[in-house]
């Protein structure tokens, strides 16, 4: 459990805690995502956060395991359910929370909101709210790296709903045809909004689809953070060494509704409760405790740290000023170019 791959620390941009075991860092990061999003849901109720808010609660092992397997210099392309990915890529929680509030101190200056978190300096190319929209972008980022002789992986997160889009098939084909270093990371939470996978796809084995483009694949339990980490690490290594793409499917589940407008009429409460028993935070901390690598006090300490970070982020977002309306037309085009 005390794996300390050289890539993990540099890759995450999170507060470096050299003394803390790797497993504790994984747990701490899942808790940071969870507590941040629970607070977001609360703030949505209080109308501090508006628009769409897609919570990742239940799926934290995917972003956590995967992000810890990437290098700091790798590109990341994400979806509209990307709060956790942004956070673990190193976007400060203050900037994420301020973005949710719509403040100019937000990581996208308040112009993007929950679905469009960006951080160019950390090569985080955004939340993309068109399902499948990120795949061609990831192919292009990888193409640019290849043409410039840069050895870098482009990690592209998307949900299983995206595999129904043409963009998935076109992107998969281009990446395979041109042997581009794209790491396709499919978070299969079984429901595309309200439509179950087997109600929308004739072939529900997603790896088969990727393999039909001659892309190597791995399928892994997305509720198990260590399994996610190990699969992503292996896949990223192969992409880095051999140059071509790789497809990893994480089997996971979202515990909350699709968005804050979703009454969840399409799935049984019993199914949700069954998956919750396998909740990634709960099961990983139990595993660590059973192995004698975590005490209840240790868990509470990590949790308290996450809560404190969230409280500070909310205070920052609350205090941050609104962008003046006079600035409305900025950032449509690049300054200096007349429009």
């Amino acid at each position: 459990m005390n794996e300390t791959g050289g890539k993990t620390k540099a890759g995450t941009g999170m507060p470096v805690q050299p003394g803390r075991p790797f497993a504790h860092r994984l747990l701490a990061d899942m808790l940071r995502i969870r507590r941040m999003e629970e607070k977001c849901a609360e703030l949505y109720g209080a109308q501090k956060i508006r628009g769409f808010l897609h919570l990742y609660i239940g799926e934290e092992a995917c972003a956590t395991g995967a992000m810890h397997a990437l290098d700091a210099d790798d590109n990341v392309v994400a979806t509209y359910r990307e709060h956790g990915h942004a956070l673990l890529r190193g976007v400060p929680m203050d900037a994420i929370m301020a973005e949710m509030f719509g403040k100019a101190a937000g990581c996208s200056r308040g112009r993007g909101g929950s679905m469009h978190l960006f951080d160019a300096a950390r090569r985080f190319y955004g939340g993309n709210a068109i399902v499948g929209g990120g795949l061609p972008l990831a192919v292009g980022l990888a193409l640019a790296d290849r043409m410039q002789g840069i050895r870098r992986v482009t990690a592209c997160f998307f949900g299983e709903g995206a595999v129904a889009e043409g963009a998935f098939h076109e992107g998969m084909n281009l990446a395979a045809l041109w042997r581009l270093p794209v790491l396709f990371l499919c978070e299969n939470n079984l429901y595309a909004m309200g439509t179950a996978l087997d109600r929308s796809e004739s072939q529900t084995e997603l790896c088969v689809k990727a393999a039909s483009y001659k892309v190597p694949t791995l399928k892994v339990d997305g509720m198990d953070v260590l399994a996610v980490h190990e699969a992503t690490r292996r896949a990223a290594q192969q992409v880095r060494e051999e140059g071509g793409p790789f497809f990893v499917e994480f089997r996971t589940f979202r515990f909350r509704a699709h968005s804050m407008f979703d009454p969840e009429l399409y799935r049984d409460k019993a199914e949700v409760e069954e998956w919750k028993k396998r909740g990634p935070i709960h099961s990983f901390s139990a595993q660590l405790k059973a192995a004698g690598e975590l005490t209840e006090d240790g868990f509470l300490e990590l949790d308290a740290e996450a809560e404190a970070e969230v409280a500070a982020a909310v205070a920052f977002a609350e205090a941050a000023p609104w962008e003046p309306v006079e600035d409305l037309l900025r950032d449509v085009t690049t300054p200096g170019a007349t429009r």
């Binding site: 929209g133 990831a138 193409l143 084909n173 045809l177």
Partner: peptide
């Protein structure tokens, strides 16, 4: 063939790839 790049009939895919390549420092 790297700089005069023939594409499949995938307009969405290769236009999107052009956008990604532009983000990545190229001038497609």
């Amino acid at each position: 063939p790297e700089r005069i790049r023939d594409t499949p009939l995938s307009e969405l895919g290769f236009v999107g790839a052009g956008i990604g390549a532009a983000l990545g420092g190229m001038r497609p």
